[in-house]
Design a protein around this nucleic acid. Structure first.
Lengths: 274, 274
DNA sequence: CGAATAGTGTCTTTGAGACACTATTTG
DNA sequence: CAAATAGTGTCTCAAAGACACTATTCG
């Protein structure tokens, strides 16, 4: 009985498949990924004193070439845009894989945190047709960026503050994608532990504090004593020890060695009903 | 000078557009929307006492027909599946609009809360080809469901508890989509005010409590005195008044009238760093 | 010792949580 | 008054926030 059903089912399945033809429908003209790449970089605020640098949230944009790789005029040429491009159907890519590949091809960055945050599929968003874009945001820690410092000054890939970026002439609906991304990353820095992606594996409390200060002026974060007292007690951060079991410290920010911390994998759910 | 640039640009743009042909690339074979429809329904736990009904989170699934609308064998026939279907390129729909339309066509429900939560685009997820699905979850308040009560007992649309649903033979990758949706809605009920979509515009504290109890056993929610003391002080709920400015109450749950509350639009961000 | 960053102690006030008590209505 | 849900008062203990104080290193 079961066997018979299975066979019958298989036949129907085969028939159904044979009957399906995607040419019966209008299908999308393209499936792309865009990536809003964020980093936090030091902002020298006073050359004379030894006051620690403040940090600032920046976004990486590329300038679209006048001509494409085949020498033909490019659409939305010369405008600033998010890195990204078409998902390659030949490679059987997912949108996330396309995002990783495009990011490396266009900016030389790989192995960083990527998060999908939205789909942009309104008709008319791209003059070439029905083109669906998956939007992601990415986080580059400052140290990784230093490796490609020279390239940052290039004419075609540049870091902008959020305010600058939203005043540029941007391609497609990238103004909307960028503002959505900014709203989201600011919220995620407060509500989740994504801050870890801006930091080295082992970080000091003041380094963490400076990251959070780029998006919040809440007294729990701005006040040194409150922040320094609270963070070591949070369930998702822990002190770093060396091989001998001693507390690991660093002097990179001060004369006095400071304790290194790291994020563990504790996931917390913050109830709004408490 | 500016004028000249504009003209030049326009020409290039036109050339670029003429050069673009989506047939140069492999494009997706379909762009669909799936909807995980949740509701919370009363569960009679004791017919003898007047103990208030407990509530339970349920999901609505449809059974895929053996034959499609043209009388041809259907793919994944007879399996249970999320309602959903193809985005209609002719109608220039977005995935969200397709979700709303399909939901009404397949289950008769409209005008409810819908939230996009993910994209499923792995190759092989649908045997018909490269088919991308946008997943949404939807919330139906119990009252809306009563209107189509008869239909619930139908053979093709049914409510299941989460446990039941995940043990059915499900079509495509719907097992994964459903478990992602469940994880998300449970989290959102705790971290956001989506609970309001399960409730009437004006609700009592005990009604709200019963909704939250379907996903949490946290003492702040289970303990009556704690919950009743805290919720009226939360910034995003407020008491309901009638036209004369008197407190509005209801007797639908008890002999003693109870105060009605409503959600306002205050959006709160719960910091994990506090 | 002065400068610079790191980190602690202490005091006051606020709020969380437990639990028993009071309130309002019907039959 | 019994039953049923709604809602409050009070007590204890823990944690939040402010701010002044101590610690470590360099030159």
């Amino acid at each position: 009985m079961e066997e018979v059903n299975k066979v019958a089912k298989h036949n129907n399945e085969q028939e159904a498949l044979n009957h399906y033809d995607s040419n019966d429908y209008i299908t999308p003209d393209g499936y792309t990924s865009d990536i809003a790449v964020f980093t936090i970089i030091s902002k020298k605020n006073n050359e004379k004193t030894k006051e620690p640098d403040n940090k600032e949230l920046k976004i990486m944009l590329i300038r679209r070439a006048s001509y494409d790789s085949e020498g033909e005029p490019n659409i939305e040429a010369n405008k600033w845009a998010l890195p990204g491009g078409f998902t390659d159907g030949m490679k059987r890519e997912t949108a996330m894989q396309a995002a990783e590949r495009e990011l490396e091809e266009e900016t030389g960055i790989k192995g960083i945190f990527l998060k999908h945050f939205g789909v942009y599929d309104a008709f008319g968003r791209d003059k070439r047709g029905w083109i669906i874009s998956n939007a992601h945001y990415a986080i580059v820690p400052e140290q990784k960026l230093i490796k490609r410092k020279a390239a940052d000054d290039a004419d075609d890939v540049r870091l902008f503050t959020i305010g600058e970026a939203l005043h540029l002439e941007l391609a497609f609906d990238h103004w909307k994608i960028i503002s959505d991304a900014v709203r989201l990353i600011e919220r995620d820095l407060i509500e989740t532990t994504i801050a870890k992606n801006f930091l080295p594996e082992a970080f000091t409390l003041s380094e963490l504090q400076r990251v959070l200060l780029t998006v919040s002026d809440n007294p729990r974060i701005t006040s040194k004593s409150v922040f320094f007292a609270k963070v070591p007690k949070l369930p998702f951060v822990e002190k770093v020890y060396d091989r001998e079991g001693n507390l690991k410290k660093t002097e990179r920010n001060s004369f006095r060695p400071s304790q290194l911390y790291t994020f563990n994998d504790v996931d917390i759910v913050k109830s709004i009903w408490e």
